[in-house]
Design a protein around this nucleic acid. Structure first.
Lengths: 219, 219, 219, 219
DNA sequence: AATGAATGAGTATTCATTCAT
DNA sequence: CATGAATGAATACTCATTCAT
C-alpha cells in the first residue's frame, strides 16, 4: 500500500471508530488494525494520535467552511437580494453539513464530537487550534445571523448561539443512536437530511424569541 | 476518617475531576489522591470505577427527579390552575437544576456530561441504567410539555425534545468553559442561575415553532 | 453465629473451594462470603490464610492417621495372624481414606491436593509441617509395606513409594474431573469406593514387580 | 535483542519459574525480570500470561508427540516384528520424555505440572486445549498399550491409565524435590534417566495386574 | 468475640510512542 | 517508505491483612 493509500485508510478507519467510540476510547491499535496497516503508521504519517485527530478535523472543516463561504458569496452576488433571513442562513448551514455528510457518512459525527470535546475545560489547546484556523471564517455568517435575530445584548447572543451549537452537536454526533431510538419507538428512522431540515425552524425560533424579562426567583 | 467521610470525599473529588476532564480521562489514582484516601478505597466502597460513576449519577438524579415531581404535584394541587404553560414547565425544570447546583457546584455539570455520554453508540448499558431507573419519572413532565408545544407528529416531537436536550447538556456540562469565554470577550461572566433563566424562552420558542413544510432540496 | 459455628463454617466452605480451585486460586473473600462470615474472620480465627490451610489439613490428617493406626493395631492383636500381605495393607489404607471421605466429601480431595502441593520446590515449609507432625505415624505402615514388596534397594523402594503416591494423589485430588470424564465416555461414573478398591491390585503389583535389570540405553 | 531472542528468553525464564513455583504463583514481573526483557514483552509476544503458558506447553508437547509417533512408526516398519509388548511401549514413552528432557531440563517438569493442572475442575478450557491439539496423536499408543494389558472392561482401563498418569506426572513434575529428599536420606540422587527407567516395570505390572474380584466391604 | 473500614503491596494488562533496520 | 519489535508509564483492579471500635 502506497503512502496515500495508507494515510487515507487510516483516516477512514479512524473516522468510523471515532464516531462510534469517541477519541479517548479509540486506540491506535484499533485504528491501525481496522485499516490493516502497521501499528507504527499513525505515528509515522501523523506524528501522533493527536496529529491524526487534527488531520481528521481539517479534512472535514476545510470543505465545510469553504462550502459555507461559497454559499454566502453566491447569495451576496445576487443583485436584487434583500436582507438575508435567518431561515436562509440556517438552511445554508444545514446544506453545508449535508455536503460533508454526502461525501463521508462518518465525517459529520466525528467533527461534531470534536467540537463538543473542544469545549471541555482541559481542551483549551484543541479549542485554540480550531478557533485560530477556522473561527474567522465563520464571523460573516454569525454576523448575518445576528441581524435577523431578536434584538438582544452581545452576551445574550453569545449564549443563545451556544444553545444552538449544543442542539447541533448533540444531534449530529449522536445521530446513529437517536435514529436507533426513534426506530425502536416509532418503527421508522429519519435520514440525516430530514433531521437537518427539521432543525431549521426550531433553531430559528430560538434565536428570534423575545427574551423574558421577568426575574427567575432564587429558591 | 469514618465510612461516610471516605465515601463522600471520594464522590466529591470524583465530581470535580469528572466535570473537568470527563470520565475516561479521570483515573482512579487522580480521584483517590485528590480525596486523600487509599487507592483501593474506590473498589472497596463502589466495587469499580463504573460503580462510582453510577453512584455519582444517582446522587444527582434522585433529588433532581424528586424535585421535579414535587413541583409538578404542587402546581397540580392548586385548585384554580388552568392549563400549565410550556414556560412554566421549563422554569420548573430550570429550578430543579438550580436546586441541584446549589447543593453542589459540580454535580450538574457531571450529570449533564453523563447524559451526553449515554447517547454514544457503545454506551447502551449506561443509557439503559439511566432510563430504567429514571425514565418513567419524567414521562408526566414530557407529556405536559407536549400539550403546549406546536402541534406535530410524534417523531417530530421526539427529535425536537432531543434538540433541546442537546442545548441543555452542552450548556451545562461546559458551563465553566463557556463562562470563561464570555468573560474573555465581554469582561463579565454570567451565573448559572442567569443562564438557566435565559434558556427558557429559547427552548420554549423551539418547541412552539411551526414546522416548515417546504422541502429542503437535495444537493 | 458463635465462635465454633463461625470457625467450622469457614473450614467447610474452604474445603469445598480448595477442592474445586486449589489453594492459591481460592481467595479469602470467596471463602468468607461462601461461609457467610465477616471478611476478617479468617485472620481472626486462624491468624492467616496459611493457618486456615493448616487447620484444614489437620482436620483430615489426624483422624486419617488414627484410623490407620487402629487398623494396624487390631490386625496385630489377632493371635494367629500370619505375615500381613501388601493387599491387606493397601486395603487398610483405602478403607482409612474411605472413612475420611464418608465424613466429608471434600476432605479427601483437599488433603490430596495439599500433599501434591507439599512436594513443590518452594513448599518446603508445608512439607516440613506435614512430615514433622504425621511422618512418624506412617513409619510402621511403610515398614510393613516393604516386607511384602519385591526385594529391592532402599532408594528404589523410595521411588516406587512415590510412584504410588502419585497415583493416589492424582486420582483422589482430581476424582471429580476424572469421574466426569468417565461419565462422558462410558455413560457411567464410579463411586470413590470402587476406585479406591480398584487401586489395590495395581499399586500392589507395582510394588511387587521385579525390577528390570537391562539397561535403558541412552539416546 | 532480536525477536527470536526475546521470545525465547521469555519462554526459558518462564519454564524455570513455572517448574519451581507453579503457574499462578509465578508473576509476569518475575518472568520478564528474570528474562531481562521489558514487562510488556509477554503481552506483546504472547498476548497474555495464558498465551505464554500455551506456548510453553506446545513447545514441549509438539516434539514429544512427534518423537512418540516416530518410534511407533519405526517399530511398526520392522518386518519380523511380533506383537509389541507393554514394556517396549513404556520404554518408548520414557525415551520420548528423555529426549524432551535432554533438550531442556525444565520442559518436562513444566509440562507435567500443566498436565496435572489440566485435570482440575475449573481448568476445563486448558484440558480441552491439550486434548483437542494432541489427544488424537496418543490414541495409537494407548490402543497398543491396552493390547498387552490384563483383560479388563473399558472403564477399568480408563482408571488404570489415570493411575499411571498420576505416577508419571507426580514423579516428573516434582523430580527436583524428590531427588533432594532422596539425597538427604540416602546420600545419593538418581538422574531422570534412571528414574524413567525404574518406572517401566512398575507401570507395566500395574496394567497387567489381574483385577481383584473380591468385594471391598463398605464400613 | 467480632466486624466494617481501610490499607499497602501486588496483579495482569494496555497505552501511545520509539527504535533499529 | 515502512515496519516488526520493543518500551516506559500508566491503567483498573485484587490481594491478604490490619486497624479501630
Amino acid at each position: 500500500m502506497n503512502h496515500k493509500g495508507t494515510s487515507a485508510s487510516i483516516v477512514n478507519a479512524a473516522e468510523v471508530l471515532f464516531a462510534e467510540q469517541g477519541f479517548t476510547e479509540t486506540t491506535v491499535r484499533q485504528i491501525t488494525s481496522s485499516a490493516k496497516v502497521n501499528l507504527a503508521a499513525i505515528n509515522y504519517h501523523f506524528g501522533s494520535k493527536k496529529g491524526l485527530i487534527q488531520a481528521v478535523a481539517e479534512k472535514t472543516l476545510t470543505p465545510l467552511c469553504a462550502e459555507l463561504e461559497d454559499m454566502l458569496a453566491q447569495r451576496g452576488s445576487v443583485s436584487d437580494a434583500g436582507q438575508i433571513t435567518l431561515d436562509e442562513l440556517l438552511e445554508m448551514l444545514m446544506r453545508a453539513f449535508l455536503v460533508v455528510h454526502s461525501n463521508n457518512v462518518n465525517a459529520l459525527a466525528v467533527f461534531m464530537r470534536l467540537l463538543e470535546l473542544s469545549y471541555m475545560q482541559n481542551q483549551g489547546e484543541l479549542r485554540e487550534f480550531i478557533m485560530s484556523r477556522y473561527g474567522e471564517k465563520l464571523h460573516p455568517f454569525i454576523h448575518l445571523t445576528r441581524q435577523d435575530s431578536a434584538p438582544m445584548e452581545d452576551d445574550e447572543f453569545f449564549w443563545r448561539l451556544h444553545f444552538l451549537l449544543g442542539s447541533i452537536t448533540f444531534t449530529l454526533s449522536n445521530f446513529h443512536t437517536l435514529r436507533a431510538l426513534e426506530k425502536k419507538t416509532y418503527q421508522s428512522g429519519a435520514e440525516v437530511e430530514k433531521i437537518l431540515h427539521r432543525m431549521i425552524p426550531v433553531l430559528s425560533a430560538g434565536l428570534q424569541a423575545r427574551s423574558d424579562k421577568t426575574f427567575f426567583c432564587r429558591l
